[in-house]
Design a binder for these strands. Structure first.
Lengths: 344, 344
DNA sequence: GTTAGCACTCGACAAAATAGAGTGCTAACA
DNA sequence: TGTTAGCACTCTATTTTGTCGAGTGCTAAC
C-alpha cells in the first residue's frame, strides 16, 4: 500500500481541519469538504489505510482520527503552504518594533512580545552572540582587595562585565595601564579572535602576568555567549488557552520546563546552526515538550549568524503562519540590528 | 457583641486548620481539638457570631466556614506565631546561597530560587538600588556616529550601561578626556549625589557642553534604579499545586499578571520603604492578586535599604513560616552583600 | 451558658439513562 | 474494481437521578 495523491489530499485535509478544531476529525466532515466528491464510506476506507501507514491515530474506536507526529512531519516537509501575514498582524509587529531601539536588550524583548502576541503561542528569543562584534573598549576597574571588574564594550553597543580576581600586588595604575594596552592593541578585533591573539602575541611580553591575562581571556571568551538569563521569554501562559493544556498537570509540566529557560537556551543554541528548524512532538529530546512543536529561525548580520529565536506551540500548530511570521521577523531583526551596527 | 478570648481562640483554630487543609472547617472538627472542651453545638454558636462579625464566611449553607480577609488580618496582626525554620529548610537555603557569589545577579537569582523552594510559593527578588553605592569608574565609549555607550561601575561590582547621543563634533579623545575627568572628580561619590554635584560644580566649566553632560547625568540617575527585567522571579508554577488554582482560568490570570514582572516591580518598589509588609487578598490593589497574599521584606547594607524581595501565595498562606524565612533571608542577604562590598 | 437532639440544606459522588458521532463491514452498484 | 448506501455496533460525553454525609440552625432540657 502506498501513499497516492488522493490519500495525500485527504491527509492534508484532516490535518488542516484538526489544526483548526483540535478535535478528532471524522470521515463525514472530510467528505463534505469542497474538492472531495467522495462519500464518507470511501473516506473511511482511506482513513483506515492511513492509520495502518502510521499517519493517523484513533483516540478510541469511534472518535474521529488525529494526525500522528509522522503526519505532521510529512505535512511540514511536503504539503504545507505558507500563510501570508495579514495587515493586522504586520501592524502588531510594527507596533512592537517601532522607535527606541537603542538598547539591544529592548529589541530582544519587543521581538519576543511581538512573536507571542501575533502567534498566540510561546515565544523565545536569544540575544546576539558577540563573536562577530568588534572590540571597542576594555576597562579593568579595581573593586575591593583582590577583585576587579572587567568591562568589555563592543561595536553593537553591548557592554558585558565580569568579576575577576587580581593579584594582590597589582595596583590600580597597573590595571589602568593594562586596560589601555588591551584596548589599543585589540581595538576593532573580532571578539572571537581576541583570545588566541592575546595568547599568541602577549604571553612573551608580560611573562609574570600570565595567569592574570589568562583570567581576562577566559572572561572575554565566556562573555561572548549570551547567558541563560538573557533568553527572552514571552507568552508562556498563552499555552493555557489551548485544550491540550486544560489539564492543570500538563500545564504545570510545560510551564516548569519553560520557567528555568536553560532548556530554551540549549535548544536555541543548537538551532543557531540552521536557518530554520522545526521539531515536532517526539522529535524533541526533552520529555516535557513531547506534545509541543518548536519552530526556530536564525537571524544574521551580514553573513554572520547572530542568534536564534522561536515559537513553542502545540504539535497542532499553524505551521504555515508561524513560519511566515518567523521569516518576517528574521528579516526585521537583521535589519534593525544591522542599522544599529553600521550606519545611522 | 465583642471578640472575647474564647472567640479569638476558636477563630485562630479555624484559621490554622484551614491553612492546613484548604477546605471549609466545620464545628465538629474544632470541638474535637485538644484544648477546647466544648461541644460542636457551642462552637456552632460562636461560629455564627464570628460570621456576623465578618471574620468567617460560608461558601454555602452546610459547608464548614472559611476565614475572611479580615480574619487573616487579625491573625497576622495579633495571633500568629512565627515558625522557626527546620534543619532541612536551613540546609536548602544554605545550598543555594553557598559559594560563588561573585556576581550580584547570581545572588539575586539564588535568593529567589531558595525562597520558592523552601516556601513552595512564588518568590520575587529585586536587586539592590545603586543609590548608596559609590562610583568607581565612568567610561564613555564611542560607538557609531553620534552614539556612545556610557558605562558606570560602582563599588559593589555593578556595571550599568546605556546608549546616549553625542554631538557630532565630539571625537573620541574628548570623550576619553571627559570620562577621565568625571571618574577622577566623582570617584567614591555616592551614586545618588552625582547628579546634583555635576550640575552644581561643572555647569560653569564646560558651558557649551551642557546638553551633553545633561544626558550623562540623566543616564546615571536612570540607571541607579533596577529595571523591570532585573526582578528575579521563581516558582511561579508552584501556585498550580494549590487547590485554589486548580481552575485553569484562575491560574492563567495569576501567571499572566506575574509574567510581565512590571507589577512585581511596582510592588517591591513600594515595599522597599518598609522592613516587612503583608498585604492580604483584597488589600492588594491589583485585581489579579485578590486571592493572594504578598509578604515582602527589605534588605539593607549597613543602614541603607537596598532592595526588597517577597513571597506571593494564596491568602491561606503559612504566614508564620513565610515571615521566618524572609527574616532569615533578609539577614543572609545583608551579610552576603556587605561582604561583597567591604572586605573579604 | 452549655449541650443533646433533630430536621433540614446542599454539594459531592456514583450509577443509570440518553444522545450522538463515528466506525467497520457487507452487499449492491457502475 | 472502485465506490457507495445501509446498518449494526462501539464508545464517549452529557444529563438525570438517587444516595450519602457533612454541616447547619433551632429548640428544649440540663
Amino acid at each position: 500500500m502506498e501513499l497516492d495523491a488522493r490519500k495525500l489530499g485527504i491527509l492534508k485535509a484532516i490535518i488542516d481541519e484538526y489544526i483548526m478544531s483540535a478535535s478528532p476529525v471524522g470521515s463525514r466532515a472530510i467528505s463534505k469538504l469542497e474538492g472531495f466528491h467522495l462519500s464518507s464510506a470511501t473516506i473511511r476506507n482511506e482513513m483506515a489505510d492511513l492509520e495502518e501507514l502510521g499517519y493517523l491515530e484513533q483516540p478510541h474506536t469511534s472518535a474521529g482520527r488525529v494526525p500522528s507526529d509522522k503526519a505532521y512531519r510529512l505535512y511540514v516537509d511536503q504539503m504545507m503552504q505558507k500563510a501570508a501575514l495579514s495587515e493586522d498582524e504586520i501592524k502588531i509587529i510594527r507596533a512592537h518594533m517601532g522607535a527606541k531601539l537603542d538598547e539591544v536588550e529592548a529589541v530582544m524583548k519587543q521581538t519576543a512580545q511581538a512573536l507571542s502576541t501575533v502567534t498566540h503561542y510561546t515565544a523565545m528569543v536569544m540575544p546576539p552572540m558577540l563573536s562577530a562584534n568588534r572590540l571597542r573598549h576594555i576597562q579593568i576597574v579595581p573593586l575591593r582587595e583582590g577583585r576587579a571588574l572587567v568591562v568589555i564594550v563592543t561595536t553593537a553597543g553591548f557592554a558585558r562585565d565580569v568579576v575577576i580576581r587580581v593579584p594582590e600586588d597589582m595596583d590600580s595604575y597597573e590595571l589602568e595601564r593594562i586596560s589601555r594596552m588591551l584596548t589599543e592593541r585589540f581595538y576593532d578585533c573580532r571578539m572571537d579572535h581576541i583570545g588566541e591573539r592575546v595568547v599568541a602575541e602577549m604571553s612573551s611580553e608580560i611573562r609574570d602576568r600570565g595567569a592574570f591575562l589568562g583570567s581576562i581571556v577566559e572572561a572575554i571568551e565566556h562573555k561572548i555567549e549570551p547567558e541563560t538569563s538573557n533568553v527572552q521569554l514571552s507568552g508562556a501562559t498563552n499555552m493555557l488557552h489551548y485544550p491540550e493544556y486544560s489539564d492543570v498537570n500538563k500545564a504545570k509540566t510545560f510551564l516548569a520546563a519553560v520557567e528555568g529557560r536553560s532548556m530554551l537556551y540549549d535548544m536555541l543554541k543548537r538551532a543557531s546552526k540552521l536557518e530554520f528548524s522545526i521539531t515536532i512532538g517526539n522529535e524533541n529530546e526533552d520529555e516535557s515538550f513531547k506534545d509541543c512543536s518548536i519552530v526556530t529561525a536564525t537571524y544574521r548580520i551580514g553573513d554572520e549568524p547572530m542568534g536564534s529565536f522561536g515559537i513553542i506551540g502545540p504539535t497542532r500548530m499553524n505551521y504555515g503562519k508561524v513560519l511566515s511570521v518567523l521569516e518576517f521577523m528574521r528579516r526585521s531583526l537583521s535589519e534593525i540590528l544591522s542599522n544599529d551596527l553600521d550606519d545611522e
